[in-house]
Design a binder for these strands. Structure first.
Lengths: 190, 190
DNA sequence: GTCTATAGGGGGATAGAC
DNA sequence: GTCTATCCCCCTATAGAC
């Protein structure tokens, strides 16, 4: 019972990592099973299809994000600290072998992934945007952030940029990613 | 001689479209050949390998972009019109069956594409950034654009955002894409 | 230039033994 | 739960006829 939970969790870890590294159509059950040290069929026992496996990866990530933002260590931060925390998620991806975010990886291949995965991605993206929008509004109301227009639109701008910047850094290097982060802070705190 | 040039061009058109729709690992020679109404092997006659084919797609796009920006219809525009022109490239992608940009598509799958393609993507991305950076500097010097920091960093922010916004729109719809464009204008012209 | 035919590999997925 | 073995499909790429 404990063993199976560990195995399932390890499979999810590997699948998540491979998704962020090679993309949905770039990884296979063979990658996971060889990394895990078992055979192909063992993965199918835990996650019958690739569609089910990747949906489980996203669901876990959504749960994780919900826990984070509802935890007092994030919830009670000042807006500018919340911003730093959010940026650090993406900086950590970059530092971890140049991974991109799940949303970006899966949306780039959106038209060649299963329908159930598309729906999970959509839900995940909405949740990220909603939190970011609330944080930006909170910060502007508090006089910390400075921007024109709707918080929802500024949130979409920032999130799309982080997504793109992780991809950009693969071709142009980590400095470009850091430059984008700094420019966002400059724009927001000016 | 004319016929072969037309065929080669049509193959490049289809490959470019498929790349922007399904990604490198999501399209095959079979897609191209069935769309073109020929057999698999005919494509290999013109472009022996997928690596060579995709490199040719990117090289053509780079040439096209160079022609555009050196043409007086773009070169002589005022900075704010240049900005609109650049945004329209991405709006047109979005309007064309929700395509994403080549750079975003290929960088998302960067670690599962051939090395020669990676190098082409890198060169292309640098050229796009260089032009955008120059345009932003020109606009700020002319007193039309308003932003803090280095033009290079603002260029990276905007380009990464356009790249991400096309992907985002696949899950969340075209309105989100338009919202991002409007927010960029708001930020830049404030 | 395009065809048929096929090689050769990898992919997702399943059956049945242990 | 994991194994071996296997099925079947799609993929990239090539050989040789037309």
């Amino acid at each position: 019972m404990v063993k199976i939970e560990n195995t399932k969790r390890t499979i999810l870890n590997l699948a998540e990592s491979l998704l962020q590294d090679k993309g949905f159509n770039g990884f296979s059950y063979a990658h996971i099973s060889s990394d895990l040290g078992v055979k192909n069929a063992a993965i199918h026992y835990h996650y019958p299809t690739k569609e089910i496996l990747v949906c489980a990866v996203i669901e876990r990530y959504r749960d994780r994000f919900k826990l984070w933002i509802n935890n007092s260590r994030v919830k009670d931060l000042a807006p500018e600290k919340k911003l730093d925390w959010f940026f650090s998620i993406y900086s950590d991806f970059r530092a971890d072998n140049g991974k991109v975010c799940l949303v970006g990886s899966l949306e780039a291949e959106f038209n060649s992934i299963p329908g159930a995965v598309q729906e999970e991605v959509q839900a995940m993206h909405k949740e990220l945007l909603a939190w970011l929008q609330g944080m930006l509004k909170e910060g502007r109301d508090a006089g910390v952030f400075n921007f024109s227009g709707e918080p929802a639109n500024k949130a979409a701008l920032i999130l799309s940029s982080l997504q793109g910047a992780l991809q950009m850094a693969r071709a142009l290097g980590s400095k470009k990613f850091r430059d984008v982060i700094e420019q966002h802070k400059l724009d927001l705190l000016a």
